[in-house]
Simulated assay, not measured.
Amino acid sequence: MSMTTNPYAQRSQYNQDAILSATPVRLLTMLYDRLLLDLGRAEAAQSAENWSVAGENLLHAQAIVSELSSTLRVDAWDGGEGLMALYTYVSTAMISANIHHDIERTRESIALLEPLRQTWHEAAAMLPAQAPVTNIGGTLGVA
């Protein structure tokens, strides 16, 4: 008997496998990619005054920033405290954007986080493929 597989279930399984097998470097870049995707979707939904979709995307973006914050080891490097302050600020901005339907706060969050996303991608591209990598709480270091 042939079983038909749901394409959505296949995609979900593929995404889960990609996350579970990702290196810490790749996982960090994936988180930043999704964070900016959520914020872009929230901005588009706010422009269309689709507040429920905007809220859903802002909440997901907040969850990603919360994860990045909770894993950040501020004492591991000189920029740790600054990055934590940025995460705190952006988190507050996203909450305000959601509560007050404030597209400018969403745009501000994008403007602050997009350069970080680019930097993490550039840093990941410079790491040797075989180098052991440690996740120092939202930042990366080569062991």
Rank of each mutant, 00 (worst) to 15 (best):
R26C: 07
T139E: 12
Q118A: 15
A129L: 14
T119A: 15
S47E: 10
T29M: 15
L37S: 02
A42Q: 00
I64H: 02
Y89E: 06
A44V: 00
W77V: 12
A129K: 10
E56T: 09
S52L: 14
A93T: 00
L113Q: 00
L113W: 00
A131F: 02
L86P: 05
Q130G: 10
D102S: 11
L112E: 04
L113H: 00
Y14C: 06
G80S: 15
M84Q: 15
L39W: 03
M84Y: 04
V142L: 12
R11K: 07
N15C: 15
A131R: 00
A125S: 15
S109F: 10
D78S: 15
L83H: 03
I19F: 04
M3L: 11
H60K: 07
E56V: 12
E56M: 14
D102H: 13
T29P: 09
G40D: 09
S52N: 09
A125K: 11
T119M: 13
A93W: 01
E81T: 10
G80A: 12
S12Q: 14
A125C: 11
I95F: 13
L31Q: 04
D75S: 14
Y89C: 08
E122V: 08
S12V: 10
S2C: 06
E56W: 08
T119V: 12
L116C: 04
M30E: 02
S21K: 05
I19D: 03
G55V: 06
A9H: 02
R26Q: 15
D75P: 04
L37D: 10
Y32F: 15
E122M: 08
E122D: 15
T23D: 09
D17T: 12
M84N: 08
V133T: 07
W120H: 08
A93G: 03
D38Y: 11
V74I: 14
D102F: 12
R26P: 01
N98G: 05
T139G: 13
D38E: 10
M126D: 12
V90N: 05
I19Y: 01
L140Q: 04
S70R: 10
S69Q: 12
A76D: 04
H100R: 15
A63V: 00
L113A: 05
S91N: 09
A44G: 08
D78H: 11
T4P: 04
W120R: 04
Y87H: 10
Q16L: 13
S91W: 01
T88F: 09
G137E: 04
I95Q: 10
S12T: 14
R11V: 05
S21V: 01
L112H: 11
A44L: 09
L35R: 02
T4D: 13
L35Q: 03
I99G: 00
H121I: 06
E122I: 09
I19P: 01
R73S: 02
A125F: 13
A22I: 02
E43C: 08
G138Q: 13
R34P: 00
Y32W: 03
E108V: 06
T119E: 14
R11E: 07
H100Y: 13
Q130A: 15
Y32Q: 00
Q46I: 06
S69C: 06
Y32L: 10
N6F: 14
L39S: 04
G137M: 07
I64P: 03
T88P: 00
S2N: 11
R107S: 10
S69N: 08
Q118Y: 05
Q13N: 09
A18F: 01
L68P: 03
A123G: 01
